[in-house]
Computed example of a mutant assay.
Amino acid sequence: MRRIRVLVVDDHRVFAESLAAAMGTEPDVEVVATTGSASAALRCLDRAQVEGRGVDVVLVDADLGVRAPGGPGARMTWPDGAADGVSLVAQALGGHPGVRLVILADRDDPQRAAAALQAGARGWVAKDSSLSRLLAVVRGVLRDETHLPPALLTGVLGELSTARRSRTESERLVESLTPRELEVLRCLVAGLGRKSVAERLFLSPHTVRTHTQNVLGKLGVHSTLAAVAVARRAGVEPAD
């Protein structure tokens, strides 16, 4: 019988180790490791993949890294840029698309749960859920199920509906751009400055400035940062 390989990611060591020990008593579950940071989790996923024993499911704390040593309210951002468990979802799936990620949360939060699902998470589960519930979720996501607490469904669906409307409007605005304006926008999404855009597209800085102003006008925004936000909602990829 092939065992389900689970990675627990939580910076509360006692909780992580207790959960790992409890899950490890199941005959079909193998807890690969417990980690206390996003960067350590990503390294663990990479190592498991190299060894040919990839992780199946990652259980990650929604507030990973938020509770910094400075006390209540202090916030820590890990070196890899993942500020919390929701941020880790996209990073993990970027290098390990077959992994299922489930968020473990202290509280219901429709907005963050929706963001997690949009990033690719397969579930949002209360940290105080019973072991049987957590195991059901782990086994369920491997059957491509999505798990949410019933109390969150209405809020999450509302958030996703709002996000879809926003994306549709952003896509409509981006479609109004000319091919050259879209190239300039993709460069902006990639973080390039005006001089770099000019060099990349073999244009003069003045022409890039004109194209940028046209992009801002068509997108209905007043800054390149706002233009990039619209582009990301529309799914515009950064220039290579």
Rank of each mutant, 00 (worst) to 15 (best):
L59C: 11
V141Y: 14
A226V: 00
L188T: 07
R133C: 05
S170E: 09
P149D: 15
A20M: 12
S176V: 05
G81I: 13
D106R: 09
A62W: 14
G123P: 10
L201R: 10
S130I: 03
E159C: 05
A231G: 07
H211C: 12
L135R: 11
L135Q: 04
V137H: 08
R200W: 15
A227Y: 00
R186N: 10
E26I: 03
A229Q: 10
R139D: 02
A22V: 15
A90T: 07
L131M: 13
R200Y: 13
Q118V: 01
A119C: 03
S132A: 08
L142N: 05
A83P: 13
L101V: 14
K127P: 08
R133V: 07
D80R: 03
A126N: 06
G70C: 09
D28T: 03
V29P: 03
L142E: 02
E183W: 01
A83I: 14
A198R: 08
L104M: 12
I103W: 02
P205G: 11
E237P: 00
G65S: 11
V8G: 15
V184N: 06
W78V: 06
P149W: 00
G235T: 12
R139N: 05
P69F: 06
L225D: 14
R167W: 10
V32K: 08
T207D: 06
L192Y: 05
T178C: 03
L192H: 07
V99N: 12
E183L: 15
Q118P: 00
D106W: 11
L177V: 03
L19P: 15
T212K: 07
R233E: 12
A227S: 12
T207G: 01
P97D: 12
V31F: 03
T35A: 14
K127S: 09
R47Y: 01
V230M: 07
A90L: 04
V9T: 04
E169W: 10
S161R: 15
G65F: 13
G95A: 11
E159A: 03
V55I: 06
V99Y: 03
R100N: 03
A114I: 07
